[in-house]
Amino acid sequence: MKTFTGSAKVAALVLAGMGLLVLAGPLALPDSHRLPSPLTYAAPSIAHPCGTDMNGRDLLLRIMEGGRISLLVGICGAAISLFIGTTYGLIAGSAGRGTDNAMMRLVDVLYSVPRLIFILIFINAFNERLQLAANSQGWEWLVGSSRLVILILSLGVIEWLTMARIVRGQTLTLRERSYVAAARVLGEGYWTILRKHILPNLAGIILVYLTLAIPSVIIDEAFLSFLGLGVQAPQSSWGSLLAEGAASINPLKGAWWMLLFPSLALLSTLLALYSLGDAMRRSLSSKNH
């Protein structure tokens, strides 16, 4: 049995490197890189390894700071989707035929509806309400990051479908196991059985799909920010950096670095997460068979 292949190790290393870069990297650069300078659209050099943007800010610093937002949204959003999906799947898989059918029918419908579109409308409609509330209540931390909070919550709310399906399928087989029957005979309650006997056995598969949910949420966030409807200035994420990059490539001013480096950051993170999740899934399914 192959547990972890070489590519999974590389993926884990890339992720660790990206995490370190995003967390510690901004501290290593001089503060002057943060400020606008007359050096606009400067090509990559030793002082600015990724070049500078239209305001003369260092692009490497912006990528690292944007990565904080992208990864934060990805991890928190995936954690929320994990919570919803696991709870939903556990209930559907254990509550009996009728409930199961109805709950899974809802998942099918949601799968084929453009969920991201509804979330888009929701975020933009709800943000002002939240800002008004935050202002009147004096919650200053929320005023600046209300959009981010809504973004995380709402992306978590749409990416739970796959998790629910997988957890439900596993619950259906697990609840037929003899130790579950034994627990039932011993008089243990419904929730106790779920918590003590079924949930621990789902831990592996939940971890795998958490790894696969993070890149999905990161992509969703980047999609919204690319359209200018997600994270907004002064905050930026990889998605909004990409939007700026896409806007600055044309035959007249070929600022290719503004497109290339954010793309590389996003691509390597997504690729690492997907291949790690894949390797984990393979090793888990070969263990089960």
């Binding site: 999609f223 490539i249 497109l259 690729l271």
Partner: peptide, 18 residues
């Protein structure tokens, strides 16, 4: 396939144009 899945359209599109 893995590479292509990690290439969302807002990354791929501008790169292809470039």
């Amino acid at each position: 396939m893995l590479l292509a899945i990690s290439l969302p359209s807002f990354v791929l599109g501008p790169l292809l144009i470039l």
